[in-house]
Amino acid sequence: MPPRCPIVELRQYTLRPGQRDVLIDLFDREFVETQEAAGMTVLGQFRDLDDPDRFVWLRGFEDMPRRAEALESFYSGPIWRAHRDEANATMIDSDDVLLLRPASPAGGLPAPMGSRPAPGEQAAAPSSLVVATIWYGNAPFDAAFVEFFERRVRPVLAETGGEPLAYLRSEHSPNTFPALPVRTNEEVFVWFARFTGQNHFHDHLDRLQRSVRWHEDVLPPLAQRSARPSQRLRLAPTERSLLR
């Protein structure tokens, strides 16, 4: 079975101080269903717990040509034209974008656990935590690395309470919508895990730190492939995020 959303954007926005909830309110009200009506999937939107001025979100596409069609439809459409000045006023930078694809048929983002609340519905933000870990490689994350991840890395993550729910790698197709830049000339491998809350996540880190297999079987070969230190994003789903 093909993975859900074979093309995924991981988008990290740097916002003006105090503007994150302004953007989230606007985004969740105006930009979810309207983007999906244009042919893309809004997979999740999040508050970065380590940066109060960072908004992170994910959207998916069926393929690169349809990505171009969907983005052209949305960004030339009436909803974006009506609200773009308000949205852009919250932002310092919106160009930190990684273009990704599932690393294997089993690596795609899962189907949502339920439906998102309706626009305007009074709903509390989920208490769950989504963690994205970004590994930067000095060479492509090829099939051999994916096998290494599935056979040696994933089992250790699972037994320490951090079972990956998706794992993706760089998509190097030409950017089919150059009006929105993406980061190029980088090799990344990104895996996502979901935790019930901060205590669950901290327990996972503690167990991982004490894992002999992690230190002997995973970290040394991973260090050989690394171009620079990994990045970890602790992400709190917004009230209307599907991924939660």
Score class of each variant (00 low, 15 high):
V8W: 01
F55S: 11
M40E: 13
T14Q: 04
R4E: 05
V8Q: 06
G44R: 07
E9D: 15
V22N: 13
V8H: 13
I24N: 10
L10Q: 09
I24R: 12
P6D: 03
A37V: 00
D53S: 08
E62L: 08
Q45P: 11
R59H: 09
T41C: 06
G44Y: 06
L15M: 03
I7E: 06
F31H: 11
V42E: 03
D53W: 05
P6K: 01
F31E: 04
D21K: 11
A38H: 09
R20K: 07
E30M: 14
F55L: 11
A38Q: 12
Q45D: 12
P6G: 07
P6T: 04
T34I: 00
D51E: 08
I24W: 03
D25V: 00
P6V: 07
D51S: 11
E9N: 14
Q45T: 14
E62G: 12
M40G: 08
D21F: 02
L10A: 05
V56W: 01
G18W: 01
V32N: 05
R59C: 10
D53K: 07
R16A: 00
R29D: 04
L15N: 06
F27N: 15
C5I: 06
P17R: 15
R29F: 13
D50G: 11
D48Q: 08
L10T: 01
L26S: 05
T14D: 08
F31S: 08
F27A: 15
R47D: 00
C5W: 14
T14L: 06
T41Q: 14
G18A: 01
G39F: 07
E62R: 12
T14V: 06
R54A: 12
R47S: 01
D21M: 10
G60A: 08
L26A: 03
F46V: 02
A37N: 14
D51V: 05
V22C: 06
D53F: 03
T34A: 09
F46G: 00
E33P: 02
Q45K: 06
E30G: 03
P17Y: 00
G18R: 04
V32C: 11
G39Q: 05
F55I: 06
V8R: 03
L15F: 07
E33N: 05
A37H: 08
